[in-house]
Write a protein that binds this DNA or RNA. Sequence first.
DNA 1: CTGTATCCTTAGGGATACTG
DNA 2: CAGTATCCCTAAGGATACAG
Lengths: 140, 140
Amino acid sequence: MTRSKSKRQTGCPIAFALDTFGDKWSLIIIRDMLMRGKETYGEFLAADEKIATNILADRLQHLQDEGLIEKKRDPQNRRRYLYRLTPKGLDLTPIVLEMVRWSAAYDPNTKASPAVVTRIQSDREGLLKDLIQKNKPERD
Amino acid sequence: MTRSKSKRQTGCPIAFALDTFGDKWSLIIIRDMLMRGKETYGEFLAADEKIATNILADRLQHLQDEGLIEKKRDPQNRRRYLYRLTPKGLDLTPIVLEMVRWSAAYDPNTKASPAVVTRIQSDREGLLKDLIQKNKPERD
DNA sequence: CTGTATCCTTAGGGATACTG
DNA sequence: CAGTATCCCTAAGGATACAG
């Protein structure tokens, strides 16, 4: 494990947020769970950004330690695991959406779904509710 | 210079945002400008988080290159510079506010101004407008 | 398939001295 | 004060082999 993540430990909320999920990969994983319905190790590994397997394992563990995701056995298939957002992790949704909005506005190269982008403006609250509903962990 | 910042260059808006300002220090600098009225090199250097002088210079340059901030001479004092958020940088405000909200909710140790935190919930739009107004670059 | 373990490279960043 | 320039080190992360 590449365990460490020395925290800055000033009381600043921005510093806290950065120390918790402000690395190169955490939000990519969160995005995959939140926006793309991914929930298994293999699905995360297959992401466009090509995360290395050891890094993925490390980040999943870290996100668990921080209480943003939870890991449980797949009831359909006893030898695999499912990763799901906890309420605390799910509550990152507004941050993710604002990042999508910002990038869509300034990166001509961005390929965000137009349906999502326009809805961020026109129906932010509804979109938020939908995403949170879809990722509610009370299945099984 | 520590120039590089290899971009992932997938079309994903989250990856783009992370590649643009997703390092350990950029959002700390943005926060200082946006929420604390800082605009000079020395003021940034004095932050609680103790950024090293070379890193600060590098990040300021990077943020300029990305078009998030601009640097101009202080009209009051010809031998100093002022750093200000551009509209593009100012448009990160919603992201910053959502991060403050999240940390305030989950970090018992956070020392965010309660005035700001409660206003994020009760008057998000008004708070946004106020912050943007305060940081409008049309002074001088 | 779901990870661990190991090895190795490199970029990020700290300390500090120095310059206009 | 407002930066540059060096030196150095560590932790983040890539490649790959291996295990349950």
